Amino acid sequence: MTEPKSMERQKGVALWRQIADRIRASIAQGDYDATGMVPPEMQLAEAFGVNRHTVRSALAALGQEGLVRSVQGRGTLIDRKDKFSFPIARRTRFTEGIGEQARNVEGLLLSSGCEPADAEVAKWLKLAVGAPVIRLEALRKADGRALSRSTTWFPAGRFDGIDAAFRRTGSITMALMEQGVSDYLRDVTQVSATHAEPDDVAQLALTPGAIVLVTRALNTDLDGIPIQYAVTRFPADRVEFTIMN
């Protein structure tokens, strides 16, 4: 079993959250695979230089995420669940990519509206700032597990009604087909990681401080014209990315 390394405290981040991040990373790296257990609370407290209450708070948060569970008389067991592998390729499709790994894939429209494009959206979609765009807020699930929440923008002049199409189909690909786009390509994908925001906690059933993977992606039609810009947030403990050529 790998011993936790001493920790440099981060200003503005709760100590229990920092410890939860370190334990989560150790689990992901396989540091505890030999025993399948997180080290005892006292051992973690000594290693991190904190009291047991702080360690207990970190473990409780990880328990709410489903990463660990406390077993009376044994300690804290790692509760592994297989991650979904989300392929990022020239043709990236959520339903197809996840559908091969799940019995049921859902796309739920949380809200939608028409709004003027801000500078970021306008830049990605190559529109004038203030041009009308359709915004969709969506939640995706696989076998009942929330896998992503996304905010997606489409040029309003070309895709009026795409919100209703997505509500009916639960699929961006099928909604685009209803709008006359039978095929499209992934032009850019940017990936980063951050802590969960309040909306992530509520909609993805995460604990405060959980890690989410964030993608910013642009899709174009076959003529290279931008049709969709999306910012999507994935729970890091449920989804991993596979980059495909």
Rank of each mutant, 00 (worst) to 15 (best):
Q101H: 03
R103D: 14
S182K: 14
R233E: 14
L110M: 15
A230T: 15
R74M: 10
R52Q: 12
L206A: 05
D160R: 09
T169F: 10
L125K: 04
A156Y: 09
S70I: 11
R93Q: 10
R233Q: 15
R69V: 07
S26A: 15
I227P: 01
V50C: 08
D183L: 08
T76I: 09
R22M: 05
E65N: 06
P235F: 07
I162P: 02
W153F: 11
G157M: 11
S112C: 07
C114L: 00
P87F: 03
E137Y: 14
G107R: 06
A34D: 06
L222M: 12
F166W: 08
A156T: 00
A193L: 13
I23R: 04
A210Q: 03
P235Q: 12
W16V: 01
P132Q: 02
K141N: 09
G75E: 05
T151M: 12
R168F: 04
L59M: 09
R17I: 14
S171F: 06
A230Y: 01
N245W: 01
A142M: 08
R167K: 11
R140D: 09
V181Y: 07
A217I: 06
Q43W: 03
R158D: 09
S171C: 14
A25K: 13
G130C: 07
R69T: 06
R90Y: 00
D199Q: 14
G73Y: 07
N245G: 08
F234A: 12
N245M: 02
D200N: 14
Y184E: 06
F86I: 00
G161M: 01
